[in-house]
Deep mutational scan, measured.
Amino acid sequence: KVILLEDVKGLGKKGDVVEVKDGYARNFLIPQGLAVEATKGNLKEL
């Protein structure tokens, strides 16, 4: 699961917690600054 930092077409809006494949999160969303891993600490910051 990841928390979206920006609106991502076809996935969700900023602040949404979405389930995506590990590779998509690690190789695209997180490096592009579009999402962060949905850890307990990150979820509390919402």
Results as ranks from 00 to 15, higher is better:
I30P: 03
R26Y: 11
G15Q: 02
G33H: 07
E45D: 15
L5C: 10
P31S: 15
I3H: 04
K9M: 13
Q32T: 10
L46Q: 15
E19P: 09
L5V: 07
L34V: 10
K40Q: 15
D7N: 10
L43K: 08
K14I: 08
E6I: 12
A25Q: 04
E6Y: 11
K44I: 14
A25F: 08
G15I: 00
A35K: 00
G33N: 10
E37T: 09
V8N: 01
T39N: 14
I3P: 00
K9N: 12
I30R: 01
E6H: 14
V2H: 04
G10W: 09
L11R: 02
A38H: 09
K13C: 12
E6P: 00
V36D: 04
V18T: 03
N42W: 01
D22T: 10
K1E: 06
K1V: 10
L5A: 04
L29R: 00
Q32L: 13
L34N: 02
G23R: 06
N27G: 11
K21F: 13
L4Q: 00
A25I: 06
D7F: 08
K13Q: 12
L34C: 06
K13M: 07
G10F: 08
K21A: 14
I3Q: 07
V18W: 02
I30C: 05
D16Y: 06
E45Q: 13
I30L: 07
A25K: 07
Y24S: 04
R26A: 12
K1M: 08
G23C: 14
D16E: 11
V8G: 00
G12S: 01
L4R: 00
G10M: 06
V20I: 09
K14R: 12
R26T: 12
G33T: 02
T39Q: 07
D16N: 06
L46V: 15
L5D: 01
D16F: 06
L46E: 15
P31F: 10
D7H: 09
R26M: 11
V2L: 06
P31I: 13
D16V: 05
Y24V: 09
V18H: 02
I30W: 03
K40N: 13
G10Q: 05
L4H: 00
Q32V: 07
V36M: 10
V20F: 03
E19N: 11
Y24F: 13
V8R: 03
D16Q: 13
V17Y: 09
K40I: 15
L11V: 12
D16K: 04
L11H: 03
V2K: 01
G33E: 05
D7I: 04
G10A: 05
F28E: 15
V17I: 11
L5E: 02
G23D: 14
K1I: 10
L5S: 03
V18P: 01
G15A: 03
L46M: 13
D7E: 11
V20S: 03
A38S: 08
G41R: 14
A25M: 15
D22V: 12
K40W: 10
L34D: 02
K13Y: 09
D7S: 07
E37L: 13
R26E: 14
G23S: 12
L43E: 15
L34I: 10
G23P: 11
A35T: 01
V17C: 06
G12F: 00
E19S: 10
A25G: 11
Q32H: 11
K44D: 15
L43H: 06
A25T: 05
G33Y: 05
L46S: 15
V18R: 05
A38I: 06
L4W: 00
K14S: 07
V17N: 04
D7P: 06
K13G: 08
K13N: 10
L34W: 04
L5K: 09
L29Q: 01
N42A: 11
T39H: 07
D16G: 04
K14L: 06
G15F: 10
V17G: 03
K9E: 12
G33K: 08
N27E: 13
V17R: 05
E6L: 14
Y24C: 07
T39Y: 04
V8F: 08
I30K: 03
I3R: 08
N27I: 05
K14T: 08
E6N: 11
G23T: 12
G33D: 04
V8K: 02
A38T: 09
V36E: 08
K40T: 14
E37H: 10
G41Y: 01
I3D: 01
V20N: 01
A38K: 05
L11Q: 02
L29M: 02
Y24K: 03
A35W: 01
N42F: 04
E37C: 13
L34S: 04
K9R: 12
A25S: 06
E37I: 14
A35M: 01
L34G: 01
V20P: 03
K1N: 08
V36Q: 10
P31L: 14
L4S: 00
Y24N: 03
K14F: 04
P31G: 15
A38M: 08
V8Q: 03
P31M: 15
G10I: 03
K21H: 13
V2I: 11
Q32R: 08
I30N: 02
D22H: 09
V18I: 12
D22Y: 08
K40G: 09
L46I: 15
V8W: 03
D22I: 09
Q32N: 13
I30E: 06
K44V: 14
T39C: 08
G41E: 15
Y24G: 02
G23H: 14
I3G: 01
V20A: 03
D22W: 08
F28C: 09
K9G: 13
K21M: 13
V8D: 01
V36I: 12
I30M: 04
K44C: 11
Q32P: 02
E6S: 13
G41L: 06
L43D: 15
K44S: 10
G33C: 09
G12L: 00
N42K: 07
A35H: 00
G15T: 02
E19M: 13
E45L: 03
G23N: 13
R26D: 14
L29N: 00
I3L: 10
K21E: 15
G12A: 02
L46T: 15
N27P: 00
G23F: 11
E37F: 14
L43S: 05
T39S: 09
K44N: 15
G41D: 15
E19V: 13
V2R: 00
L5R: 08
N42H: 08
E19W: 14
V2P: 00
K44G: 15
A35L: 01
G33P: 00
I30A: 02
F28N: 14
K40M: 13
I30D: 05
T39P: 11
L29C: 03
G33S: 05
K1H: 13
N42S: 08
V18F: 04
F28A: 09
L29F: 02
G33A: 05
P31Y: 13
K14W: 03
E6W: 09
A25H: 03
L46Y: 04
L11P: 00
I30V: 12
A38W: 08
K44T: 09
A25V: 06
P31Q: 14
G12W: 00
A25E: 05
I3M: 06
E19K: 11
G15R: 03
D16T: 11
E45C: 09
N27W: 07
R26F: 12
T39M: 07
F28P: 03
A25R: 03
D22Q: 09
K44L: 15
A25Y: 04
N42L: 08
L5N: 04
D7R: 05
G41F: 02
L11N: 01
F28I: 14
G12H: 00
P31H: 14
L29Y: 02
E19Y: 11
L11W: 05
D7W: 06
K40E: 15
N27V: 05
F28D: 08
R26V: 11
I30H: 02
D7M: 06
T39W: 03
K1L: 10
G23Q: 12
G10R: 06
A35R: 00
K13W: 09
K1P: 07
K14D: 02
E45P: 03
L5F: 03
R26N: 13
G12P: 00
P31N: 15
A25D: 11
L43C: 15
K1Q: 13
N42I: 06
K40F: 14
K40L: 14
T39R: 05
L29S: 00
K1G: 04
F28T: 12
G10H: 09
K21G: 14
V8H: 04
L34T: 03
R26L: 12
V18L: 09
G10S: 07
I3W: 03
G23A: 14
V17M: 09
E19L: 13
K1W: 13
Y24T: 05
L5H: 03
L43V: 06
K13H: 14
G23I: 12
D7L: 04
E45N: 14
Q32G: 10
I30T: 03
D16C: 10
A35Q: 01
L43T: 08
V18E: 01
E45G: 12
G10T: 05
A38E: 07
A35N: 00
G23M: 12
E45R: 07
V17A: 04
K21W: 10
L11E: 01
D22P: 11
L43W: 04
D22S: 13
D7Y: 09
T39I: 06
N42M: 08
N27F: 08
E19F: 14
V18D: 00
E45A: 05
K40P: 15
K44F: 03
V36C: 10
E37G: 06
N27Y: 11
K13E: 09
K21R: 11
P31C: 13
Q32M: 13
K44P: 15
G15C: 09
N42P: 06
L43R: 03
G41P: 10
G23Y: 10
Q32S: 13
K1F: 10
P31A: 15
K13D: 06
L11T: 04
L11Y: 07
K14M: 07
G23E: 15
K13L: 10
N42T: 07
L46C: 15
L46F: 04
A25P: 02
L4V: 01
E19D: 12
L4T: 00
L5G: 01
R26P: 07
V18K: 05
